[in-house]
Design a protein around this nucleic acid. Sequence first.
DNA 1: CAATAAACGAGACGGTACGTCCCGTCTTCAG
DNA 2: CTGAAGACGGGACGTACCGTCTCGTTTATTG
Lengths: 205, 205, 205, 205
Amino acid sequence: MSEPALPDVVRRGRPRDARADAAILRAARELLEEMGYSGLTMDAVAVRAGVGKATVYRRWSNRAALAMEAFLAQAEQGSPFPDSGSAREDFRLHLRALARLAARTEFARVLAALVAETHEDPVLARALLERFVAVRRADAALVIERGVARGELRRDVDADIAIDGLYGPLYYRLLVSRARIDTAFTDALVGQVLDGLARRPDRGA
Amino acid sequence: MSEPALPDVVRRGRPRDARADAAILRAARELLEEMGYSGLTMDAVAVRAGVGKATVYRRWSNRAALAMEAFLAQAEQGSPFPDSGSAREDFRLHLRALARLAARTEFARVLAALVAETHEDPVLARALLERFVAVRRADAALVIERGVARGELRRDVDADIAIDGLYGPLYYRLLVSRARIDTAFTDALVGQVLDGLARRPDRGA
Amino acid sequence: MSEPALPDVVRRGRPRDARADAAILRAARELLEEMGYSGLTMDAVAVRAGVGKATVYRRWSNRAALAMEAFLAQAEQGSPFPDSGSAREDFRLHLRALARLAARTEFARVLAALVAETHEDPVLARALLERFVAVRRADAALVIERGVARGELRRDVDADIAIDGLYGPLYYRLLVSRARIDTAFTDALVGQVLDGLARRPDRGA
Amino acid sequence: MSEPALPDVVRRGRPRDARADAAILRAARELLEEMGYSGLTMDAVAVRAGVGKATVYRRWSNRAALAMEAFLAQAEQGSPFPDSGSAREDFRLHLRALARLAARTEFARVLAALVAETHEDPVLARALLERFVAVRRADAALVIERGVARGELRRDVDADIAIDGLYGPLYYRLLVSRARIDTAFTDALVGQVLDGLARRPDRGA
DNA sequence: CAATAAACGAGACGGTACGTCCCGTCTTCAG
DNA sequence: CTGAAGACGGGACGTACCGTCTCGTTTATTG
């Protein structure tokens, strides 16, 4: 969002107040957590942040953009990608962490709303894709690469399909089927995908 | 909606006009297709259906409930489940049909909106679950059962995980990652899941 | 309202139920007294009377007509016109009775609503005029006539103006200025009008 | 409406647009004149004034309050109170002017509706009393005072009753009995009341 | 150091949809 | 044909947000 601000020369007038950015995002996150997306109204954000509505709109062009930012801020810190020496173990831990995040917060509810908005607004779609989807997929691709290099995974693995096979069912349960997401599930998921990808050491014999 | 209505005795007063139901649903479907969920306003539906707003609200308690109904009406006829004699083939055909439906219509856009609404309203969540998710999963479970009986699939298959493995990635692409859904993808999906489930005839040898 | 009913021959089918008339009027009167004119909705009347809406509309063509009927039913029994032997005394007693009626009931509130309706609907205007205004004025005119005959009032009295002078201020306070209406007021009113009308016995001397 | 606004300090935010006030009142007045009270819908006012509904509701809390304002705006300029040197003449002229106003406009129809509303809403009642009734009565009281000072009227006159005696019959005809209001009537009215109030020069003799 | 210019809190603005309520009419089945 | 019941088309109500637009004030940078 906020442009990088052409180092020195150009900017004139009173500079943006960085505290406003923080207060707005904080208010947005709180409202999302407390009342979900429908509770995130621009008026409510402005009031809670102690800020005029124009100050909000100066930074985010509409409600969905702000919600997206607030969501991403939370999501980005949510689920680290470990490097345990085993791809299977890396995915297991990552999916468990993701499941825990979803259980603890309004993650699913907010994501559902944002996903809906992306289907109405291409700009938003790009934001979600680049800052949420692509980032995680890149991390996951790295895990797979390491697994291949290490000989843990087959050389001809289709990383895209594999990642879809891991994330897909999880988001499907999170958003659509609302089925329970526990360790048993995430582990089974990893099993289902990786058992097809793992090298069959006995095969060559 | 429309309970079966205790055959004779109970119903009193002027009966609901079935033509109104049809006109409203038709209007709702058209608006969804033309303008997406945000275009489905109760006023617009009433006007287009040539019906008073009260007549709409008498049948569906709010906008989301009506949209759900309109969506389900369309979705229910959308993707038949074949019985080709092979589970792999059944799934291949089914997923291809589903992909085609999604490509042809505003399926994803509408589903995304409805999924978001289910996260705000438990009644709606039940409706989507029972009339959309569960129905298809039951059909899919049947395909798996037949596959097992026929010896095509392993006896110890976890049907739930398998079905999640098929639908999950598809809906993930449809709703979240917006990646291309083509025959290559759906076929690869079926491969990924079924190759782990298929009996290994050579194994016993 | 209810047509005179062409004695015998013509009427076919199930005859009207006289108890419905009573129940409707009773419900209407109660609602007027409890919630004022705005509380007299046709649905509420029908429910309270234990009657279908069509049954109400068969008897009164609209809400205002029914309210008028209910009002008149109450008003007609409200304020008898005495014959005490003195016009002054007759008016005094009558106005006091009217004031008491207004104090005890929602008379003013309902009348105000009905008056407003008469300005939108000439049929209603005629009803109020003929069944409320004219009736009372005729009675009052009789009192004046008796007073003239008796020598209590001047021979050249303009009865219309006199009656306006008595009723006008009372209804003005009742409807418009909402000022207190007590015995002092009604008596003063009679004084103001009749002192101008009384024969001046000393004059001839 | 519009409080005098604590000179500087307090007012914050964008100030109300005075043109909106004017446009709304204008629209309201026109609608009252064209279609009567029932034609004064908030939607119609907003549309005709080229204003959002919220802008209307920000200023007047409901339909009745707005109608009252529009009525008063018109009524206030309607009937000047002359000072001819004679109380009788002052009243004669004033009542004639009032009658003309009523004949020319929807005065009675609108007043009737507003009077009805005052019986449902005390806030409205106060408004009508203070800004319509009391103002005119005060003017009339002044005329009487001058008449007394000048020796034209009796010293012991009860101004309240006298004023009721003048306005009462007029509003009674206007609202309730709908009888003709012409010069003959208003003049007779003044006669009826003032002839009782005038000093009887011959009396002292 | 004054002028300029943008940002600020506040809140009014035009617009649009919501879901509710009531009107007066119509449609069913029962007597 | 009347009765109770209640659905029907229509249309206004008052509320809530949206995203934009003034206000008067504050705060850096520029001349």
